[in-house]
């Protein structure tokens, strides 16, 4: 079962909500008037998204252990399937569904 109690879960959800809402409300609260947006902030708004998505990809593989178990092979094969399918069909839902299905088949029946 989950290691957190209900209050800890509530605090965690609060933290995620606060972080998300800060990113949504800050531009309107700070630059809602006629104030100019600093060039540096504008630059970060454009440059950060790509880097954040890269961080998320690494995050989603953080618990893969290449030294033990199945050595990350199911993850690697599923990743290759997702990339190939997405470059081919460019259909988000299809790539996600097929990639997850490949992984589930691999961990249940192959490895």
């Amino acid at each position: 079962m989950n290691p957190l109690n209900i209050w800890q879960i509530a605090v965690m959800i609060g933290a995620v909500t606060l972080g998300t809402m800060l990113t949504r409300f800050t531009p309107f609260l700070v630059f809602g008037g006629e104030k100019r947006v600093p060039k540096y902030v504008e630059y970060l708004g454009k440059a950060l998204p790509g880097a954040a998505l890269g961080l998320l990809v690494i995050y989603s593989f953080k618990d893969v252990n290449v030294l033990a178990g199945s050595h990350g092979l199911p993850e690697l094969i599923s990743l290759a399937a997702i990339v190939a399918l997405h470059l081919w069909k460019k259909n988000m839902l299809l790539s996600i569904a097929a990639g997850t299905a490949v992984y589930m088949l691999l961990v249940n029946f192959v490895f």
């Binding site: 933290a15 990113t23 949504r24 409300f25 531009p27 970060l44 708004g45 950060l48 998320l56």
Partner: peptide
């Protein structure tokens, strides 16, 4: 969790702008 939300959703700053 807070820092992760800030980072992951930093693109919303750009949407807001």
């Amino acid at each position: 969790a807070l820092v992760m939300a800030l980072m992951v959703n930093a693109r919303h700053l750009f949407y807001g702008l």
